[in-house]
Computed example of a mutant assay.
Amino acid sequence: MTMCAPLDARRVVAVTALAGQRPVGLVVGSFFSVSLDPAQVGFCVGISSTSWPLVRAAPCFAVNVLAAGQQDVAAALSRPGAAKFAGVAWRASDGVPVIDDALACLECTLVAEHSAGDHRIVVAGVRRARVLRRADPLVFHQRRFATVAGAGHGAGDGTGGGDEVRLHRR
């Protein structure tokens, strides 16, 4: 939201899925926690997005939390058109595209969508959450990419090895 932009630094996340064997995805402007039990997250998608219908049609999708230095990945997945993944390194994991060098990956299913002006609010159920490595996150602040130094909590060698996060289950 333009009026809050000076106040709001947001982590950059890419939502990805497979359309057949082809990766599809987009960068979303807002990403947030919805519930711990059951584990749910939310994000907002512009109603004019041509990528979201492709992601929505997949049985599951991934929320990739991007790291500092992944501005090129964010820019590529923000472009319109079908060639968003040209030059973006990724691997398939349990039916979702996981972006190489992302900080974390949440494997999700669609729970609900709500209309909200010129956006859709998406609620996603988290079926698996993994920390892929520890490093500083990529953030978007005042219409440009930035980093939050030290947010990676002593990043070390950056190899989180795919530590699975325990989810609350009823």
Rank of each mutant, 00 (worst) to 15 (best):
G156D: 15
A58I: 10
C60L: 13
C4Q: 11
L77Q: 08
A92Q: 12
V24M: 10
V98H: 03
A112W: 01
A124G: 07
D163V: 05
G162R: 14
V34P: 00
I99F: 01
A92W: 00
A89C: 08
A124H: 08
Q70C: 04
R134Y: 08
A151K: 12
P97N: 02
A68D: 15
L66W: 05
V165H: 13
F43A: 09
H119L: 02
G95R: 07
A146N: 12
Q21R: 15
V28Q: 06
V13F: 00
G150C: 04
T50E: 15
S33A: 15
A17R: 09
S49K: 13
P6E: 12
G156H: 12
V131A: 00
A92Y: 00
C108E: 12
C4Y: 14
S33T: 09
F140D: 14
G160M: 04
T50Y: 09
L138T: 11
E107R: 15
A17W: 08
A149L: 10
S49A: 06
G117W: 04
A58K: 12
A62W: 06
S33W: 02
F145V: 06
A151W: 10
K84L: 02
L26A: 06
V88A: 12
A151R: 12
V65G: 03
R170W: 02
G160D: 11
Q21M: 03
A5N: 11
Q40S: 05
S78R: 07
A57F: 13
R120A: 04
E164P: 02
G25Y: 02
A89L: 10
